[in-house]
Nucleic acid binder design. Structure first.
Lengths: 205, 205
DNA sequence: GATTATAAACATTCAAGGATGTATGTAAAA
DNA sequence: TTTTACATACATCCTTGAATGTTTATAATC
């Protein structure tokens, strides 16, 4: 079987990304060989080298596949006009993020790979920078929302929007790392929505 | 040169741990070969296999070398009798943790390796669990302190000690990951003490 | 509408270079 | 003398990148 149609080729590509996710998740990025990924996808290394330059590019593709929709989804809530109080928007956005993380195995796997199954050196050093960018823009976004809340008077006056944003920023990052990194099977997931709610409650008037 | 004295042998062991730290930090754990580590320490792989069973054991030793003193140090502050208010003890302990992290390159390197240069699969899967244990006990410890604060009346009554502890837990973890993982060179380090202070201020009466 | 040239979409093979674990050698400390 | 604390050598096994082979979808041509 050679020379597939465009749709079939696209299927192969998707299959490789899926396989990469599974293999990366099981063996870690460095120990995952292109051969194993290819075999998992039911093809050979030739297919990998056709669709991607190398392992790093395959990794990027796998990541982008999940990251972009995730950001779009949470941003939609964060900037939704449905919430009169910006604090509600922040709470909804963060809650949704962790809901997807728990409900969608694909998303969770990719985040688990990024957090505890990839060594950010050499070709992958840039991944860390790129992964850090969404984190930085997230900070900027919630800072904006906190400022809005301050103007509307729903943020407690003893807290500056900048401080509130940084605190929530660290809180969210920690929650992500704790829930995926080390605290599996401790029932943390079930507590996350409550933790978020009470975190936000701390800064409401 | 063969058959060193016990002290010299111990020096070799220390040297191997130091070399491992440097090489792990530069190339990531998986891509670090025992040969490279040995050469960096000025010995051969024979020495590595004499002192350690394999790479994993060397990794454990490197980690323990830094972790244990770190925990001891922060616990000393957390449980110090010098602070009348348990919230002050928590603040001092966490602040000290990040101070050491910034001041001590060795400690920072080990944490950086643990956070972004190691793939937690196979032989290293257990490392993640072990690394998660200090995190869990930290939660238990600050929960105890928050409870004490509640009894003393220095914790705001609208927050339960459990909630306060979990929030601080996530905050601390996030701070650690943000400062080491992705937000280098953004001046975050300089803001950390202030962030901790204001985080704690949020829950003081 | 049939033919044909082109290039897409892989499979296979090759060359080269490590890495690990173990086995063995060895000189000095104890 | 016996261990210790390594160094050296060996066997095995992988992995990657590139080169080359193969078949067929597809577009251009007639």
């Amino acid at each position: 079987m050679v020379r597939k149609t465009k749709e079939e080729a696209e299927q192969t590509r998707k299959g490789l990304i899926e396989a990469a996710r599974a293999v990366f998740h099981e063996h870690g990025v460095v120990r995952s060989t292109l051969d194993k990924i290819a075999r998992t996808a039911g093809v050979t290394r030739g297919a990998v080298y056709w669709h991607f330059q190398n392992k790093a590019e395959l990794f990027f593709a796998m990541r982008e596949d999940v990251f972009a929709p995730m950001i779009e989804r949470t941003d939609a809530l964060l900037f939704s006009a449905d919430y009169a109080d910006p604090l509600d928007a922040i709470e909804a956005s963060v809650t949704e993020f962790f809901r997807v993380l728990e409900d969608c195995a694909v998303v969770r796997e990719v985040f688990e790979i990024m957090i505890s199954r990839c060594e950010y050196v050499d070709e992958f050093a840039s991944v860390q920078e790129e992964a850090g960018r969404p984190a930085l823009t997230f900070l900027a976004k919630i800072e904006r929302m906190y400022r809005l809340a301050a103007e509307k008077g729903t943020l407690r006056s003893c807290i500056s929007p900048e401080d509130a944003a940084r605190d929530t920023w660290a809180f969210t990052s920690g929650l992500l790392h704790l829930s995926l990194g080390c605290q599996r099977e401790t029932g943390l997931e079930a507590q996350i929505p409550g933790m978020i709610r009470r975190h936000m409650a701390l800064r409401r008037v």
